[in-house]
Amino acid sequence: MPISLGRLFLIFLKVGAFTFGGGYAMIPVFERELVKRFKLIAPEDFYDTLVVCQSLPGPIAVNFAVFTGLRLRGKRGALISLLGVVLPSFIFILLISVFLFRYIDVPIVEAMFKGIRLSVVALIFFAGAKLFMSHRSLEGLCIAVMAFALVFTFSLHPVWVVLMAGAYGILSRRAKGGEAP
């Protein structure tokens, strides 16, 4: 018996609404709900899906929702899952923009936001450092430094860095004779 569209929507809505800290924080929650609790996906399928979702552009939680919805209930399932995972953040941000953000110029709020902006510097740096440490190598460091310099120092559009990195990856594999990874 396939899962109902309503239940599918509710699962993704729930994960979308209660997971703080970006798309990556949603992954373990998806696993708990879809693999362990409702047994809709086999564990090995879950990790395979994740690899594909990480290799495609776009927010990983969105990719995952579309992929899972498509597999479980076809096109309508994909649309329903997409809606479920996107709606909570859409509504939260709208509420904040409409009702809260007009107080940003109040001195108390402004002082708090000065502090919060500083935490953002640390949070992004930490995320970048973690990504680097997960696959650290001298070649990786050189590529990272080059990408940084191209975008920050020479104001190259980041799209070109993404395209050049992809092209270099393919070419360097060809040069090595297409060895198995």
Partner: peptide, 21 residues
């Protein structure tokens, strides 16, 4: 092969964001 190079390049891009923020 693409991600072997793209991953560290993304680190560089993220660090560029850190610098401008």
């Amino acid at each position: 092969a693409v991600f072997r190079v793209l991953r560290p390049a993304l680190v560089g891009l993220i660090m560029a964001s850190v610098a401008s923020v």
